[in-house]
Each structure stands twice: as C-alpha cells, then as structure tokens.
C-alpha cells in the first residue's frame, strides 16, 4: 500500500543576489494509494517545486516527506516522472527509450522486449518501436514518456504539465489515456496542470495552490475522474456539476491573480 505523506513541508530558495524565495510554506497532506491528485495554481506557486521534492530531486528546507513510512531522500524508481516535453532521449529509438529503466537495472533480453512491446501497445504505439523519437508528434512523444515511466513499474507517477504542449484535440485523447492507465494499473498519480478543466477531469483529488508563499489554498474531492472512465468526457465536462466547479475554481484563481497584480502595483 503506497501512501504519500507530506508534513509541514517548506522550501526556501536562496537566490545568488542574497535574497530568497519561499516557494512552499507549511504544506501538509496525505495521499492514499491509487488516488489521482491534480495540482492547480497560478504560475510560481510552487507546483513544480513540490513535485521535484516528491521525486527526490530537491531536498526541502523544512518539514518531512514519506512514502510508505520511509523518508524520501533522493530520486528512486518507485517514483516515475513524466515531463512536459524534451525529456525523451532523442538518440534512442522509441523502444530503447521505453526499455531504458529496465536496461539500467541490468534487465535486458526477450522478456524486457516483450514487456516493452506490451507497453507500447497499451499507449497505442505498437508499430512505432523502431521509430526515432523525433519522428513522432508531440502527443506520441508523451505516450512514449508514459510508457517509459511505466516500464519501471513505479508506485507513484509524477507528471509536470504532461499535456501542456499539446493541441486541444490531442490533449483530450491523452486525458482519456491517462485515466485509462490509472484505472488499469491502479497507480497513484500526482499531476500538475494549468488547465482548470483538466485538473477537474483528471483529479479525484484536487489542490488549488496559491503563491507567495506557495501553499495549498483549497482542496477538493471530485467524482469526475471515476465517471470519466465510463462516461463520455465531452458530456461530463458540460454537465452542470462540472461547470459549476469550474466556475468556482476559476473565480478563486482570478482572485489570486488580482491579489498578485495588486501586490505588484503597490
């Protein structure tokens, strides 16, 4: 049972000019296994910072963070990461990208090959194994990134604006794919997005974060991710419940933006 527990987490960046930025302040939450959590908030509110701390790329300046009661002290393959773009290895073909994790662990051979093929089929790229990654469209590249991350069978999948660089149509398809993978693999997922709609649709939990200092402003428990597995996404996104939540969150973020502007004006 994976359980992510974040306790009074704080992160202060020291700037070279002597100043400092409080990117996270007193962030606490527990995330049970199998949940999908989306993080939403204005630019600079510490979403990436939080994700990087969970991934182990950054050490927090205060507070603690545990996965299954063990403190996170560095990157590990129990936590997979999907980036917005440009994190694929363009010198490797699609299949070699996906098999990167297993190969680094000394797992090479027909078994790995079969697993890679399986994963590629899961993300809809069964025939693309031998293609160069730069020959693929942005959406396909993100599918490869998903497959590469799944190849190591992590407990927790972290995604930083994974669909941010895609066009609207591809984006919708990929949203459904993420839900499908979530359902099939029962993984815990933390996903950062700038799109309110995406955060509502994909998150069965949703944190709206606020900047300066970065913190969790409001939390939601949402039904849409589960519903999205069976219902038509378009209809779901047009349902009164969905649009009502969307308006609520949008006005919340608007308020924040106005405060930021006010600050800057002063």
């Amino acid at each position: 049972m994976s359980n992510l527990s974040v306790d009074h987490l704080g992160m202060i960046y020291e700037l070279p000019n002597g100043g400092s930025v409080e990117a996270l302040k007193d962030v606490s939450f527990d995330l049970e296994s199998g949940r999908i959590l989306t993080l939403l908030g204005p630019s600079g509110c510490g979403k990436t910072t939080l994700l990087n701390i969970i991934a182990g790329f950054l050490a927090p300046t205060s507070g603690s963070i545990n996965l299954n009661d063990a403190p996170i002290t560095g990157p590990g393959q129990d936590r997979g990461m999907v980036f917005q773009q440009g994190a694929l290895f363009e010198w490797l073909n699609v299949a070699d990208n996906v098999s990167f994790g297993p190969r680094m662990n000394g797992n090479e051979g027909p078994e790995t090959d079969a697993m890679v093929q399986d994963l590629l089929e899961t993300v809809g790229l069964g025939d693309f194994g031998q293609k160069a990654v730069y020959e693929l469209s942005g959406g396909m590249q993100q599918r490869v990134a998903l497959a590469r991350c799944l190849a190591n069978d992590p407990e927790l999948i972290l995604m930083d604006e994974p669909l941010g660089a895609l066009d609207a149509l591809t984006r919708e398809k990929m949203q459904s794919l993420i839900l499908e993978l979530w359902d099939r693999t029962q993984k815990t997922i933390v996903l950062v997005t700038h799109s309110v709609e995406e955060a509502l649709f994909l998150g069965d939990r949703l944190f709206v974060m606020a900047p300066r200092p970065g913190r969790i402003e409001r939390e939601y428990e949402l039904p849409f991710a589960k519903l999205g597995l069976t219902e038509d996404p378009r209809e779901l996104k047009n349902s009164p419940e969905f649009t009502e939540k969307r308006e609520e969150i949008l006005s919340l973020i608007w308020e924040m933006e106005e405060q930021i502007m006010g600050h800057e004006g002063a």
Partner: peptide
C-alpha cells in the same frame, strides 16, 4: 543537457 533528461534517468533507476 536538459535537467529533465537527467532527472528522468535518475527516476528510471540509473546510477
């Protein structure tokens, strides 16, 4: 080198 590439590799278990 893009930091995200190095990060991705670390998360995939590379030394």
């Amino acid at each position: 080198v893009r930091l995200s590439k190095v990060h991705a590799a670390y998360s995939l278990g590379a030394s």
